[in-house]
């Protein structure tokens, strides 16, 4: 799936994560801000990367501000942000869910 424009999903509320996805030439670059980055940073980035891979996104810039989100929330926010960024919100990728 191709990222066509910048999109945002999620909030900065407790237990949520705010994800901003934008275009990149190649590869996935994640800029993560989290109070629990030391302990869970790798795990959070892995969930985002895996979800992007499952959706067929190979090039994207991701800015993530985590407020203690669970994996399922991170995944849901990633999917929402990608669908907005790829302009496919009308045809959701159910198989990824």
């Amino acid at each position: 799936m191709e990222i066509k424009k910048t999109a945002i999903a999620g909030t900065l509320e407790s237990s949520d994560i705010q994800l901003m996805i934008s275009q990149a030439d190649s590869g996935i670059a994640i800029d993560l801000q989290s109070d629990v980055k030391k302990v869970f940073g790798d795990q959070i980035e892995a969930v985002i990367t895996t979800t992007l891979n499952e959706m067929g996104v190979t090039a994207a810039k991701v800015k993530a501000v985590d407020k203690g989100a669970l994996d399922c929330v991170i995944k849901a926010r990633t999917i929402a942000a990608v669908q907005r960024a790829a302009e496919t919100t009308a045809t959701p990728a159910w198989e990824v869910l």
């Binding site: 945002i8 909030t11 900065l12 509320e13 407790s14 705010q18 407020k67």
Partner: peptide
């Protein structure tokens, strides 16, 4: 928490 709610809503 209110700060985050407001900034989030503005963004």
């Amino acid at each position: 928490s209110h700060f985050n709610s407001i900034v989030s809503a503005l963004m």
